[in-house]
Design a protein around this nucleic acid. Sequence first.
DNA 1: TTGTAGGCGTTATCAA
DNA 2: TTGATAACGCCTACAA
Lengths: 338, 338
Amino acid sequence: MTVSPRIPTLDDVANAAGVSTATVSRCLNEKQKVSPKTLAKVMKAVESLGYTPNFNARAMAAKQSHTIGAIIPTMENAIFARGLQAFQEKLLEQGYNLLVSSSAYQPKLEAQQIRELVARGADGLLLIGYERDEAVYEYLARRGIPTVLAWASIPNSDHASVGFDNRAAMRLLADRVIEMGHRQIAVISGIVEGNDRAAERLAGIQDSWQAHGFDLDALPVIQTPYEIEHGASAFERLVQADVKPTVIMCGNDVLAAGVISKARDLGFIVPNDISVTGFDDIELAKHVFPALTTVHVPHRQMGRVAAESLIDLIEDRTKKVSHQLDVSIEMRASLQRI
Amino acid sequence: MTVSPRIPTLDDVANAAGVSTATVSRCLNEKQKVSPKTLAKVMKAVESLGYTPNFNARAMAAKQSHTIGAIIPTMENAIFARGLQAFQEKLLEQGYNLLVSSSAYQPKLEAQQIRELVARGADGLLLIGYERDEAVYEYLARRGIPTVLAWASIPNSDHASVGFDNRAAMRLLADRVIEMGHRQIAVISGIVEGNDRAAERLAGIQDSWQAHGFDLDALPVIQTPYEIEHGASAFERLVQADVKPTVIMCGNDVLAAGVISKARDLGFIVPNDISVTGFDDIELAKHVFPALTTVHVPHRQMGRVAAESLIDLIEDRTKKVSHQLDVSIEMRASLQRI
DNA sequence: TTGTAGGCGTTATCAA
DNA sequence: TTGATAACGCCTACAA
């Protein structure tokens, strides 16, 4: 049987090194306030005992955790993963640690995770999008938790944010589509409820559609979860309609990949028989056949900027600002003039 | 200017309710030990103050955090995301929280994150694969941190694990490939160094190859990161060889997707001109063209079982065990008899 | 440069 | 059923 392991504490180190706990603490946190001699002595003790500071105790005593929390809708979408990776790299660089949790696109779960992370002493929070219960924002404000909203930009609000204008971006793409002669557009959107990014993208298409003088009733829309399988089956439904679409505009690249796959199964030649567009410009977009016309989003840059903004906020260097990043339309083979 | 917000503590609640902190604590943790009357009184105070327990303090006093940590090589691969999602669901169900961090495939970073999570008071850990410095295992053992290794199974070790035999699975697939008449196999493997799963998969192919009486020197292998782009460029190099491969076996589906894409660009018809196989059976595998022959891995099940095992370990219900999950070969159009 | 000692917000052990 | 009170491990004035 194993002996219950005794985890070394500051006290143990202090004893081993023959100094006080205060000195050990200094060696760990502010080396410059300690003589080289004792520093060496202490570090040796730390080493030989295999001491690691207890995070909880440290956070409690210091009233800051050097931890920031991020809550993303899902880990199963590479775009968040990529942005988060950059976010984390920047944080580590600045001496902060990242705690990630996923809300599975459920606002209630997100609210719970927020409390959770705050209770853990997170110094700041990264959230995705802006649409959430006002109570959540009040809670955050009351606790004074610096928060940055990413993947969306909201110039006219008092939230700090870094992202891009989903609506304008999608509108731009829709403009191009219409300019290329398409008059029968069908949309496969993500689920709009509780997802402002999806809602904005859909609205962007509708903006363009109406601005060109068309009727919203003549714009078929299917909402479906962001999964390749769902993109495929949505396409199947769409092409059964009386008026066949000449182009399918999708809420993201994953849906579009599903569409392209199913289209081929059903004997459609993309883009000759039907065009397809996506959004995000994930790696895959270049590698499906035909390559996907889509909106390029600078995910990594977004992650980096979000980290910088958040740290600035935490360390009280700036007021809340709204960073608007540029996106671009990537014209590839899947969209063709009609 | 906002007033520095005062976060309510147990004391505040106790005062507001006119009871002791001990009683409040009981109301929160063991309701049955408290009279309904005071319970109501206390809960009202909790409510009106918007009190949330401080996690760090709680963990410190109770000597357990009800938190478990997971370290994955990368968030950018959907297979970990999927397994982790299931892992988390199971944990939440059992009253545990999940902390995730990613090591970016760097052993040193992983070691650091392990210390980090332990320092945070994680009650248990989930790690991917088994290949790591012995010192890490010693550290874990000394601290008495229950740990489960996933995505790999190691029957002959004293580690708890849940996963599958990467080597045997890949060997099975290679057997099929060879049975179908292929004699010119080329391999695009993940980077083997520091990644036991990749190493085992490559070894599986080599096992089969040699068992069929062929020479390892005649088996071209390229190691490359698990990214679609790299799969594509590896393919390009491979087909420039003197003896053209009749089949490309890839370390995972992402690499295979890159191969299929590049093959088309170069004018190859898959599978007529060349066959392709993958590993993992991600969603995409069914939706590339032609659909990918691959090894199906039960990622979600793995996550669930890992969670159950870990909790059992933490709550001291079982000894360490090694769960071996079944995988299956998915025969699809990308692999053809020659 | 170093040590002493109080406090961070909980839980848990005893008494009452 | 409740209330004091001592941990838990660390940081940080303050004093020496």
